[in-house]
């Protein structure tokens, strides 16, 4: 009944789509955005997932500046 699946098809589809659109974003970043969605998937309110995504993007930009 849990949705944990060793072969997470949604993440695999996301990775393949990333190749399809020739994304420049790192795979780890994309996986992190997906982890946010997985964490909040059954919350009615999307405020929490959006907040986490904004923070992730900020951190990602911060890392770029630091480099």
């Amino acid at each position: 009944m849990t949705t944990d699946n060793d072969q997470d098809m949604a993440l695999a589809a996301l990775r393949a789509a990333s190749d399809d659109v020739e994304a420049t974003l790192p795979e780890s970043f994309i996986a992190a955005t997906y982890a946010i969605q997985r964490r909040h998937q059954f919350n009615q309110d999307q405020t929490a997932s959006l907040h986490d995504l904004e923070k992730l993007v900020e951190d990602h930009l911060g890392q770029g500046e630091a480099r």
């Binding site: 098809m9 949604a10 695999a12 589809a13 996301l14 393949a16 789509a17 990333s18 399809d20 659109v21 994304a23 420049t24 974003l25 994309i30 955005t33 993007v57 990602h60 930009l61």
Partner: peptide, 22 residues
């Protein structure tokens, strides 16, 4: 941020079709 969010939107958009097919 526009660049990142735009790219994310495209990736997620494409992934939905892919996942449905898979």
């Amino acid at each position: 941020i526009v660049k990142i969010a735009g790219e994310l939107e495209r990736i997620y958009g494409r992934s939905i079709d892919r996942l449905r097919d898979d």
